[in-house]
């Protein structure tokens, strides 16, 4: 190669810090061991953050389930993405729970090119999981 280099000492530590977890969404949501593990972890976090909504919060935060934080800011949620709008003042913006559920079930009804996965239509989440997520999101 053209440039010969000495490897910097601080380099590996620096590299490690730059390599933090990169799984954005993780693979298929047909419940497997990894899904259970991801949900358990998220639910544990939610016990502290949203003690009255642990199930809905857990399903929303888990990278292998709703992974809403992948694209939306949610109060108290860590490392949010920002391709979607922050999920705040939900009751003001979605007075009807049914309309909110519809958005989560299939976002492409409102916007065919939506980045938001059609969780219900594509069966990425079960109906009861979508109910729990809707209940949680509606409280935000």
């Amino acid at each position: 190669m053209i440039i010969k280099s000495i490897k910097g000492k601080g380099f590996s530590a620096f590299l490690l810090s730059a390599m933090v977890s990169l799984a954005i969404f993780s693979a298929p949501a047909i419940a497997g061991k990894k899904d259970d593990k991801a949900l358990k972890k998220a639910t544990k976090t939610c016990q502290k953050l949203y003690p009255s909504m642990t199930q809905g919060c857990g399903l929303s935060f888990s990278r292998r389930h709703g992974n809403c934080l992948g694209c939306h800011q949610i109060q108290k949620g860590a490392q949010p993405g920002n391709v979607g709008p922050p999920l705040i003042a939900m009751k003001a913006r979605f007075p009807s729970r049914a309309v909110l559920r519809e958005q989560i079930w299939d976002a492409t009804v409102k916007n065919p090119n939506s980045l938001m996965p059609p969780f219900g239509r594509h069966q990425a989440l079960s109906e009861s999981q979508i109910d729990k997520i809707t209940d949680f999101i509606h409280t935000l």
């Binding site: 933090v20 990169l22 993405g81 090119n113 980045l115 996965p117 059609p118």
Partner: peptide, 24 residues
């Protein structure tokens, strides 16, 4: 895919935005 996304959704519509901690 199950998440219903095209290459363009992420790399044309949203470059510079973040998915979790990842800048597109």
């Amino acid at each position: 895919g199950q998440l219903n996304l095209s290459c363009a959704n992420c790399h044309v519509d949203n470059p510079g935005q973040r998915i979790r901690g990842n800048t597109l």
